[in-house]
């Protein structure tokens, strides 16, 4: 009797595992490379900020203000709408959940802590990643493909100093400010819903919230948003600077920048919480 088993199958399986291992190793290597490039880029931004004037490459304050307007001020309407909606949603969910324990009034505590420590930095980070991170990646990618970055270099204008550093500083200032704005609007929206549902006055809601929150809680949220700001700008810049493949490449770079930024924000948020709660 002959053996009908295909002797090739184990070989194919080993080949398959080998190929997948190579792909995985390449992904890891590329990830480590990008991490290294990102760190170098961040260090370069700090270098130009601190020592640019000694290299005839001063970081221009008006450019920082222009970027602050673009990243922060022009984002206020959408940030307000989002924060208001989240405030209402959290209050609705909180009251509905706490009602089962007969503890509806504790919604103030739940909303205050979750908003200031989690939701505001996270939502504002995602908003800025989608709005400004994508714009930065698309801008740099387009400039790269149309040789505008080469033109800057040939004019002795360092692109990182001229384009990236002002955006980084502006995002570092505006994202925490947007987060603080979001804290206020979300809590106000929550107060509005709580007044409507439980009859708790705004004053009582405010006093209770201020009693719960301390500077640490607020700094926790603002500190996280500062980290998110760095992540957004560095990821967008890396994707924009290393673009290839014409208009399609610009689209890919922009999408990749937004997806990676959001993923980085969420993972960093988790690690941050882990670090803070463990210590």
């Amino acid at each position: 009797m002959t053996d009908n088993r295909d002797p090739i199958i184990p070989v194919r399986f080993i080949a398959f595992v080998g190929q997948r291992s190579i792909v995985a190793a390449r992904c890891i290597r590329s990830g480590v490379e990008e991490l290294g490039l990102g760190t170098t880029l961040f260090a370069e931004c700090l270098f130009w900020l601190g020592f640019g004037k000694y290299r005839h490459q001063t970081v221009r304050v008006p450019t920082i203000f222009e970027q602050m307007m673009e990243i922060g001020i022009f984002a206020i309407p959408i940030a307000t709408v989002l924060s208001f909606a989240i405030g209402i949603t959290l209050a609705m969910q909180g009251i509905a959940l706490l009602k089962t324990f007969g503890a509806e009034s504790q919604v103030v505590l739940a909303v205050a802590l979750s908003v200031v420590r989690e939701f505001s930095p996270l939502i504002m980070g995602i908003l800025v990643a989608g709005r400004s991170g994508s714009a930065l990646a698309a801008r740099l990618a387009t400039m790269n493909l149309s040789q505008e970055l080469d033109a800057l270099r040939s004019m002795s204008i360092n692109p990182v100093r001229f384009l990236v550093t002002p955006t980084l500083i502006a995002t570092l200032i505006m994202l925490p400010l947007l987060t603080f704005w979001s804290d206020i609007i979300t809590l106000a929206a929550s107060a509005l819903y709580t007044w409507n549902q439980l009859g708790m006055s705004f004053q009582a809601y405010g006093v209770t919230t201020l009693g719960i929150l301390n500077a640490n809680h607020i700094m926790h949220g603002l500190g996280k948003s500062a980290i998110f700001a760095v992540l957004i700008v560095i990821i967008a810049t890396l994707n924009g600077l290393f673009v290839s493949g014409g208009a399609e490449g610009v689209g890919r770079a922009t999408t990749r920048a937004v997806v990676l930024s959001i993923a980085a924000i969420i993972i960093t948020d988790m690690l941050f919480i882990l670090l803070v709660t463990q210590s």
């Binding site: 005839h56 400039m143 040789q147 505008e148 080469d150 033109a151 040939s154 004019m155 002795s156």
Partner: peptide, 17 residues
């Protein structure tokens, strides 16, 4: 930096901002 101030480059597509 000093050297680049003494040279100009006109790129193929213009590379205007």
């Amino acid at each position: 930096h000093d050297l680049r101030l003494r040279m100009g480059v006109a790129f193929q597509g213009g590379a205007m901002f």
